[in-house]
Design a protein around this nucleic acid. Structure first.
Lengths: 256, 256
DNA sequence: ACAAAAGTGTTAGAGGTACACCCATGT
DNA sequence: ACATGGGTGTACCTCTAACACTTTTGT
């Protein structure tokens, strides 16, 4: 294992841009909750959770690196993503995290420790995926990824919790302008679904009747059937009209 | 000159993060126009304009690098700035720009050419300054910076025009949330000034009477006197109440 | 007196908020 | 029948957009 890691590090030193990484906050929506994908790292007795991420090849565009990383974790290819922040303070490295893992064999290895103690600048992207289409996969050095509710993602390694928080803020700011909902929901969905999603993103309640009217008047969704699920009164199913606007408000109003 | 550049490059190779740079879009407002600071590079017969920028030292936070660069160009220290995008496609370098400068001695120098042909990832920041406080200064390798109207900043070197355009979009999106106006105007200003500023940022007209009412009702500015300027009817002078909200709308409404 | 820019008033209509109410289904 | 969640109606109020109007200055 350690040899495999060393080999990987050496290949990065040749191919990758030094001290630069990419991290992805991959959002999904399930059971009325906004969730993100995290990777579990278990070395020795300690475990920690990190965001999916990786390095950028010299010959690779940043966006291509993101697509590669998202595909690794989710199998999906053409999804919506957006660069939202860069984290790169002078002290930003995995050095602390590595020193905590006393029980790991890696701890003693100078070459590996040195690599992970380097300062890294991370360009961060948020990505939106349809939860129901995702089959989480193990990646090269990690166990299978897993979903974690955004509310519970407060104890990730290094600054990754901050990255999630920042991604969420960015998502809120983008909500009015970008087709966010249509990327987080399956092709067919009910209005209560959409309502819960928007409430989940904003972190507050929205009057249900008013929400319905606003969305319906905007003309961005069409009724496509009935919900066959087995609960109470069946809800109408809707789909976003593609080609039409799919953002939740239609222009820069900004209060003016 | 060329030796000085070579020396600089060698110092960067020791101290700076490789392939990473910082660029600043420094906005100011003057004569009812939104402007940005650019540097003129004159080598041989050709000239080109670039955004203020520089490298990040290994031991330096990104924000410290930005402050250093802004200070170099403007002399100002505590100003508002915000990271808004990263540009870093695989083909992003100054190679083309350098090859165009046939008449320059630098063109023939392999070491310098190689340095400037490297792929660079640029973390971009927008900064807001009070135009009236700025005294533009020449920097290490450049003539004095100069103000250029945003509308005319379409032909900067490499992708710098795109960076400006992107900064402006970001500024518009931030307008409702951040204290933008108070950083672009002098401490005392008239309502017509503020009106023109917002129109300048948004790139469209706003009904003057309605604008006045909206701003005044928001309670974020106070009357502090009369304008002593020598035109027509004197306008009232206002100042932002610090401590109070200074953004143009007060909360995330987002259409809901 | 007149032009130009600052500042005030007014009105119709759109949009937001809050809440009461009706409807369809499973148990 | 009744609880639950889906879906509709409506009244009140605020905000917006548009434009007419008044005021204060310099010439």
């Amino acid at each position: 294992m350690i040899d495999k890691i060393k080999k990987y590090i050496r290949s990065l030193e040749k191919e990758a841009i030094p001290q630069l990484s990419v991290n992805c906050v991959i959002f999904g929506f399930h059971e009325k909750t906004l969730k993100v994908i995290v990777n579990k790292i278990a070395l020795g007795q300690s475990t920690m959770f990190v965001l999916p991420g990786g390095y950028v090849k010299q010959t690779e565009n940043l966006t291509d690196a993101v697509q590669r990383i998202v595909k690794e974790s989710t199998g999906l290819e053409k999804i919506l993503f957006k660069q939202f922040a860069v984290f790169g303070d002078a002290s930003r490295s995995f050095e602390k995290e590595f020193k905590v893992l006393r029980t790991s064999k890696l701890d003693g290895d100078a070459e590996v420790l040195k690599w992970f103690s380097k300062r890294f600048i991370s360009v961060c992207y948020l990505a939106l995926v349809d939860f129901s289409k995702i089959e989480l996969k193990p990646t090269q050095f990690l166990d299978a990824a897993q979903w974690l509710s955004v509310e519970k993602a407060k104890t990730l390694a290094m600054d990754h919790s901050h990255i999630v928080e920042s991604a969420r803020e960015s998502l809120i700011k983008e909500l009015p302008y970008a087709p966010i909902a249509s990327n987080l929901l399956p092709p067919k969905f009910t209005l209560p679904d959409l309502h819960a999603l928007v409430e989940g993103i904003l972190g507050r309640t929205i009057d249900r009747p008013n929400f319905r009217r606003k969305i319906l008047k905007s003309d961005m969704i069409v009724k496509v059937g009935q919900d066959n699920s087995n609960k109470r009164r069946p809800a109408d199913l809707y789909a976003f009209r593609h080609g039409k606007k799919t953002s939740l408000i239609d222009e820069y109003k900004l209060g003016f």
